[in-house]
């Protein structure tokens, strides 16, 4: 365990250093990622320039949702973006190399890539959350602060697991082209806005199929002391993370056992 942690830090640091090495790319990457999510924020600003609140949510409360979605996303891209290389590795047969090394395959996959532009999302998310939290009526108590930290960590772990989960498709469908993983990852955009506005089908989609609502909406209900029938789900968020992690590790093992190489 300690050896793994040390290895992880070392490998990840190398990846981050590599990313910083190409100056122009580094800054453009950060700029691009910030703009991508910033565009959504510009939209929110414009939207609330026209109306005061949406389904009972003010602009600052939506900013909280935005922040809760972006912070773990940024952390995940920084520290756990490796699974996105998995499908390409499987496709090209490079995965053989991973399997013969004396380090756990999962650890190697995680450290395959560190997307430095996660910094952009992390910053943007932190600013959005901070602004939202200080300008809406969010009463901080010590347990809420603890809850917030717990939620960020739990969301981060969930998104890391989801990174693995979606890319495991590579074990079953070896073409590296599939857009399903990207689509699944993109569903998080729904969770940047209050669930109340969506059609029931979408509510089910981002609660059950892709549990992104447990990252932003449900925890936000708890933080804002909203008394709805669903508020308790915010407290259950870490449990959902555990379920996702267990499911992912199970499928990962099945996938590993299935892997037969590409015929060298």
């Amino acid at each position: 365990m300690r050896r793994n942690a040390r290895l992880y830090l070392k490998l990840q640091l190398i990846q981050l250093r590599t990313a910083v090495e190409y100056r122009a790319d580094f800054w453009i990457g950060i700029l691009g990622a910030s703009l991508m999510h910033g565009a959504g924020l510009v939209f929110v600003v414009a939207l609330f320039g026209q109306i005061n609140e949406i389904a009972g949510w003010s602009a600052w409360e939506v900013a909280i949702l935005y922040g809760l979605a972006l912070i773990p996303r940024g952390l995940t891209e920084l520290f756990c973006d490796g699974p996105w290389t998995l499908r390409m590795m499987l496709n090209k047969g490079e995965f053989d190399r991973v399997l013969v090394r004396p380090v756990s395959p999962a650890l190697q996959v995680v450290t395959m890539l560190a997307s430095i532009h996660g910094v952009g999302q992390l910053t943007l998310g932190t600013v959005a959350f901070w602004l939202g939290a200080s300008r809406s009526d969010l009463d901080w108590t010590w347990w809420k602060a603890a809850f917030f930290v717990a939620i960020v960590i739990s969301s981060w772990i969930m998104l890391c697991a989801i990174n693995f989960l979606v890319n495991l498709i590579g074990f079953w469908e070896p073409s590296a082209q599939s857009a399903i993983p990207t689509a699944y990852a993109m569903l998080i955009d729904f969770a940047k806005f209050p669930l109340d506005i969506y059609h029931n089908a979408i509510k089910v989609l981002i609660t059950v199929v892709a549990p992104y609502a447990f990252i932003s909406y449900f925890p936000a209900l708890v933080l804002l002391d909203r008394e709805t029938a669903w508020t308790w789900l915010g407290l259950a968020s870490p449990l959902v993370t555990i379920v996702v992690v267990l499911l992912t590790s199970r499928l990962w093992k099945i996938g590993l056992n299935r892997y037969q190489g590409v015929g060298h």
């Binding site: 122009a24 453009i28 700029l31 691009g32 990622a33």
Partner: peptide, 10 residues
């Protein structure tokens, strides 16, 4: 630049 992803996003 070397990679184009950032440019595309921007």
């Amino acid at each position: 630049t070397l990679s184009s992803v950032g440019l595309m996003w921007a």
